[in-house]
């Protein structure tokens, strides 16, 4: 596939926001949320990320003015469901923030927060996982990846926020969790990538055309200068570059942040905790880009050669 930046940004940013909400909720349940400033600023950040993500996702639409229609088919469409959950999430975070600001946030709010975050991860991941013939995506690992990457970035974010507002005790709590989640997310992504690399697609030129000759090649795709089918489904990035982007995204999205968090454990260095976030964000964006780029759409079999 040819990754659409709007979608890449939306899923990564919203993911981080969801993770952050979960982190804040967890602290709330743990009764570790005595510092209202932390709750409000974190929720503000989460809200900002969600809205920013949503805004980005509009960029993907050809007819954004009709976007409201997308809520209608929740019965069958994961995309529709996502479109319903996102505003709900935004609303909830807003309310929660407002409540937190007034100093009395009933536990139902963090509870709903966790539920909505989970639902949103599920919807977003299912949008891809339900496309059975995109074999790179049609797998439980897709759900695991979206959830763990979101949680990881969310907890790293929670840590960074804590660090930046000098809520050292909270940072001390979140850092180890962030570390564990980041390592887990890393392992999950590596597992998915190994699986994808090993896949041999069920669709072949033979099954795509019904021409059962062992040596079958396309000679012409039927047009000279490409079409939607060549623009939307081919990223056109050189294999080497692709591989490097893949490697970098693991390094910056997970490994480096993990190392920084590990170093921050004993020292509780605020600099390291913030740095972990700064480095992870581009890393995760690259990883999400790679998630799309790695998917080989069966339609591509029909669009191989111009002549």
């Amino acid at each position: 596939m040819n990754p659409a930046m709007s979608v890449v940004l939306f899923t990564t940013l919203a993911g981080a926001a969801q993770g952050l909400v979960v982190a804040v909720a967890a602290l709330a349940f743990g009764g570790a949320l005595d510092d209202p400033a932390y709750a409000t600023s974190s929720l503000a950040v989460a809200e900002f990320l969600l809205v920013a993500g949503l805004a980005a996702s509009f960029g993907h639409l050809g007819r954004p003015e009709r976007a409201w229609r997308a809520v209608l088919m929740w019965r069958t469409s994961w995309l529709s469901r996502e479109v319903i959950v996102v505003p709900a999430m935004i609303g909830l975070v807003g309310v929660w923030w407002w409540a937190a600001r007034n100093g009395q946030a009933p536990l139902i709010l963090p509870l709903t927060g966790i539920v909505l975050a989970a639902m949103l991860w599920y919807c977003t991941a299912m949008i891809y996982a339900c496309l059975r013939f995109i074999e790179e995506w049609a797998h439980p690992l897709t759900l695991v990846n979206f959830t763990l990457s979101g949680l990881s970035s969310g907890w790293v974010l929670a840590t960074a926020i804590a660090a930046s507002i000098r809520a050292g005790d909270i940072a001390a709590l979140t850092t180890p969790v962030a570390l564990v989640l980041t390592i887990a997310a890393c392992i999950a992504r590596l597992a998915a990538r190994r699986r994808n690399a090993a896949l041999n697609p069920r669709s072949t030129l033979q099954s795509a055309t019904g021409i059962m000759a062992p040596s079958l090649r396309q000679i012409s795709m039927g047009m000279s200068a490409g079409a939607f089918n060549t623009r939307e489904f081919f990223h056109g990035v050189a294999p080497l570059v692709l591989r490097n982007i893949g490697r970098m995204s693991i390094v910056f999205g997970f490994l480096v942040p993990a190392i920084l968090l590990a170093l921050a454990l004993p020292t509780q260095s605020r600099a390291l905790q913030v740095l972990a976030l700064v480095i992870q964000i581009p890393g995760l964006i690259a990883d999400r880009w790679y998630f799309f780029a790695q998917a080989r759409h069966p339609q591509n079999l029909y669009y191989q050669v111009v002549s």
Binding site: M1, H60, L61, G62, R63, P64, R66, A67, R69, A70, S77, L79, I127, L131, F133, I134, S203, A208, A227, F228, N229, E232, F233, H297, P298, Q299, N300, Y302, Y303
Partner: peptide
Amino acid sequence: KCIGCKYCAWACPYGAREIDEERQ
């Protein structure tokens, strides 16, 4: 009704759908 999200095109294994770049 179409909002041009292209999701259906992703969901077609045959590449049978094309977005109209003008009308989106």
